[in-house]
């Protein structure tokens, strides 16, 4: 009876310790990543290809998402503002929302699926096929070889992709406004500039950078800790995407609370 009653608590306890252990091990990997930065000779060569994979290859999907977000934002804003609020507020809404929220977050989420999953699957496969062990036996520090270039590439390229996505979203909003909403370009731009402060851009870049770091390091973490063959790789990949998506949303709220 006591055991029966205790079961949910035991499950809760196990859950929390597993979470705490995971966070701790992720923290250790992050610490190792920072230490591994000193092996410049190892990771520097690998940074550029990773930047191409993380950044350049993600540009189309990010632009695609941002374009439709911009269109929908403009249409929905005009729908909401019908008659009551001057239409140039469409520009305010598109600009602010793209910069502060949707640009960084949607790009982050899209890239957590694309980049985070890719990293977790790749490193997971390398783990279960002993390629990571092989790296060590060839005297390569695996964190410097595998984690550092991916994390750095994500830190550098997430803001880049996000900036392009924001530009695309605003452009799409503008195009929608003047084509479908009977607004003039000047009205839209007036709205766009009305409440703009340079900090909006800084805020977006801070968010994107932190998302990049989290997505890459979480992907690396789940890849590195993969166990048990192909099934394990699939498991790691799923968890990397789920966890990094959740972390993005939590971080998003965190930045909104601390920086705004």
């Amino acid at each position: 009876m006591i055991r029966l009653l205790g079961a949910p608590f035991a499950a809760l306890g196990r859950g929390s310790t597993t979470l705490a252990e995971g966070v701790g091990r992720w923290g250790m990997l992050t610490g190792q990543t920072i230490q591994a930065l000193r092996h410049v000779d190892v990771w520097l060569r690998l940074l550029l290809p990773q930047m191409a994979r993380v950044g350049v290859d993600s540009v189309p999907i990010a632009l695609f998402i941002a374009m439709f977000t911009g269109i929908v934002l403009a249409l929905q804003a005009s729908y909401t503002f019908t008659g009551a609020i001057p239409l140039y507020f469409v520009g305010v809404l598109v600009g602010k929302t793209m910069m502060l929220e949707l640009g960084p977050v949607l790009t982050g989420l899209a890239l957590s699926g694309r980049v985070g999953a890719n990293i977790a699957a790749e490193l997971g496969t390398m783990r279960v096929t002993e390629q990571i062990d092989a790296l060590e036996t060839l005297a390569y520090p695996p964190v410097a070889y595998l984690v550092v270039p991916r994390v750095l590439a994500a830190i550098i390229m997430f803001p880049v992709v996000t900036a392009l996505a924001i530009g695309m979203g605003i452009f799409a909003g503008w195009a929608t406004s003047i084509q479908l909403l009977d607004m003039t370009s000047a009205e839209f731009i007036n709205g766009l500039t009305l409440f703009f402060v340079p900090f909006d851009v800084t805020f977006a870049m801070i968010k994107a950078t932190s998302f990049g770091f989290m997505v890459a390091s979480i992907g690396c973490f789940f890849g590195f800790t993969t166990e048990g063959g192909a099934e394990g790789v699939g498991h790691s990949t799923t968890r990397a995407v789920v966890v990094s998506s959740m972390v993005i949303l939590v971080l998003d709220a965190f930045w909104a609370v601390t920086l705004l």
């Binding site: 550029l48 191409a52 950044g55 600009g95 550098i156 803001p159 992709v161 392009l164 530009g167 851009v201």
Partner: peptide, 23 residues
């Protein structure tokens, strides 16, 4: 690869810099 990375980063830098100034 190198060229594409360069182009993308440059595009983003230009966008951010001139976009901010323009706004």
């Amino acid at each position: 690869n190198e060229a594409m990375v360069g182009v993308v980063i440059l595009a983003a830098l230009i966008l951010v810099t001139f976009g901010t100034l323009w706004l």
